[in-house]
Structures are given as structure tokens and as C-alpha cells.
Design a protein around this nucleic acid. Sequence first.
DNA 1: AACTACATGTTAGGAAATATAACATATCAA
DNA 2: TTGATATGTTATATTTCCTAACATGTAGTT
Lengths: 131, 131
Amino acid sequence: MSRELRRAMPLLPISMVMQLTELTARQIRYYEEHKLIEPARSESNRRMFSLDDVDALLEIRELLEQGINMAGIKKVFDLRKVNKIKSLNNMAMSDSELRSILREEMQQAQIMQKTSIRQGDLSRFYQRKSE
Amino acid sequence: MSRELRRAMPLLPISMVMQLTELTARQIRYYEEHKLIEPARSESNRRMFSLDDVDALLEIRELLEQGINMAGIKKVFDLRKVNKIKSLNNMAMSDSELRSILREEMQQAQIMQKTSIRQGDLSRFYQRKSE
DNA sequence: AACTACATGTTAGGAAATATAACATATCAA
DNA sequence: TTGATATGTTATATTTCCTAACATGTAGTT
């Protein structure tokens, strides 16, 4: 199985994702509500997250900590997508498309100016059964 | 984070492992009872499995399908461990140790003679939310 | 044929996780 | 002050997972 597929495989329950990301369930659900992530669902409607989802959430957390709001993050993610596509099919894009992208990037830059940084650590979720 | 650590990280609930391995909860718990795997536990006592655990379970399933019993599988796993250590510290082992290993390998070979093969596929656990 | 051991199924009862929905609140900007 | 945004909190229902006990099918023994 390819690395990409593995990272996209929905395996983790929300409790694990909470630990991995240090986000509350409320936050995670809220971000889903706003389409920043779209975790899969089990048959019984439980959210199942992939490692890609976790990555996205970690990024959301970072961007939020930098003072960017939902709308801004959504834009960042969209931009990311565009760039991925652009670099994938290295075909040149039309001028108007490029201008549109640049415009968005400048808006982003503006938003980015109000920053503030903080950071937590991620090294607690590894416990083995004590025998 | 290293690849090894990631594979050893206990992330998955038993329900996921059931899907990934096509084993029942009863089976998985039984194998744990017999020390073939030792999944971590969450604070609330739920089993949390690593990808390594899943690998082990897939192997257990294969060996069982070949007619090998718990005791045999335990031996196989122990042998595996010995080989790993042996190849790690390439220091020579004492003759008695080597003889002991050979004896065990011969026993294994005997057991292995009563075989029977079957195989399932593993390509169902990937569902995305239909919007 | 009756016994036994092994691997697994099944059931019961309880504790914890998760879901949705509604309401509360802190902060910031207009 | 008001309004929007992001998050907390609470309530209620459903589902998962745990342990423990008992049941059962298959092989191998006696």
C-alpha cells in the first residue's frame, strides 16, 4: 500500500486526535463544521481521522495561534490546493488565473501581519502497558 | 519522528484493528491473553493498537490459517526476536545457544508440515464521507 | 464412544466515548 | 454597545469497549 494511501486512511478516533493535536473535541468539530477538514465516518457515525487530517489540524492550530481566523485559514488551504495542482500539471496557467492567485496571496500577507506566536510540545501520547 | 516510533505508536481502537485484520474482538483479546501481542491501554483501560500490533495480528492470522497453534506461534515470534538480536549485535553466540535455536527451528519445521492455505483481501476499510 | 483441550462464539452488565444540539461566554472590531 | 467569532459547557442518546462467564465445534486421546 502506498505511503499516500496510508496517510489518507481514516483510522483514528477523535480522542486520539485530541491528544495528538492538543485540540478539544469542540474545536475539532467546529473546524469540520467549517469544512477545514472532512473526516470519514464509521458506520455508526463516529468520526474517523486520517494522519492527513491530523496534519491539517496541526496547521489550523498554528495558523489560529498566529491570529488568523477561519476564513483566512480556508483561503490558505485553498491556495495550498491551487499550488499543488499548479505544480502537478506544470502546464502554464492563464494570466488571469495567476493574477487572481497573486491577489489572494497579498491579502494573505496583510492578514499575516497581525501575528503572535506560541507553541506546545507533542510528546505525551506514548504509553505502554506496565506489566 | 522516526518511522519506527510511528509504527510503534498506539493509535488505533480495537474496532479499527478488527477491520484491518478481519479478526473478531474475541480473537484479538485471546491472543493478547496469550501474550502474542501487548497493546497499550488508554487511561480508561481501552486497548490502543500500533501498526506494529496490526502487523503481528496479520501474521498470527496467517500462521493460524496454516494450522499452527498458539504455542507454535509464540515460538515463531520468539525465534523472530532471537534472530533480530542475533543480527543486531553480530557478535557470535555460544554454541549451546545456537544448538538450542536449531532444535527449535526443527520443531517448527515439523509443525509446519501440516499446512493448509487460504487468504482474504484487505481493501475495504477506506470510506470517505459522501457529501 | 466418551473425554479433553483449544480456539472461538455468545451473552450480560457496566463504564466510558462520541454524537448532536442548545445555550453561555470571552474577545475583538465596528 | 452591538455583533460576530471561536470556544466552553451541559444535556441526552447511542455506541464502543471492558471483563467475566458460559457455550460450542473440532481434533486428538483414551
